[in-house]
Design a protein around this nucleic acid. Structure first.
Length: 159
DNA sequence: GCCAACGTTGGC
DNA sequence: GCCAACGTTGGC
């Protein structure tokens, strides 16, 4: 299958790209996703080798801050069975897990963040899922052309 | 801090 | 299966 592209949102105060950069192997589990549409994407669609845009939400600057690669495809999110986790889901059956995650590895942190503001001003990115009204989905598809444009913007040297 | 837009839950 | 109530997300 052709390489696919995705955008993962995270609030940087919960988990930022710098946190990922400090992980052993710069790899992490993308756990804690508790939305069925996002779950289906994690479980069924995302494949090893796919590209991921790492997006910081809520805290300014809201922006795509780097690029990751999927290193392990959908498997059950262990935090759903951990009563001490804030992602604990007592209704999930271990024999039929409700929630899934993937593992991603940092490829590069951008030289500069590609802000939401800038994305909204870039014609080639007008149709991005991120720009749609009420697009709260935290795991969303990105097209190959959007991917290229964002990467190019991120590689541009800071002013 | 506000609130619109969604998603989920649970009573009926 | 409907839908009101509630909770959350996330930009402003």
């Amino acid at each position: 299958m052709a390489k696919q592209y995705w955008l993962f949102k995270s609030e940087p105060e919960a988990y930022s790209i710098d946190d990922l950069a400090k992980e052993p192997g710069q790899t992490c589990h993308w756990d804690g996703i508790r939305n069925y549409q996002a779950r289906n994407t994690l479980r069924d669609k995302i494949k090893v080798g796919d590209g991921v845009l790492f997006y910081h939400s809520v805290k300014k600057p809201m922006a795509v801050v780097g690029v990751c690669e999927v290193v392990r495809e959908g498997y059950p999110d262990h935090t759903q069975f951990d009563a001490n986790s804030k992602y604990y889901d007592p209704k999930s059956d271990p024999d039929d897990p409700r929630w899934y995650m993937v593992d991603i590895k940092l490829v590069e942190k951008f030289l500069r963040p590609v802000t939401l503001e800038e994305i909204k001003e870039t014609e080639a990115l007008f149709d991005m899922f991120l720009c749609r009204k009420g697009a709260r989905l935290s795991v969303q598809p990105v097209t190959a052309s959007e991917w290229k444009v964002i990467r190019r913007l991120g590689k541009r040297k800071p002013e």
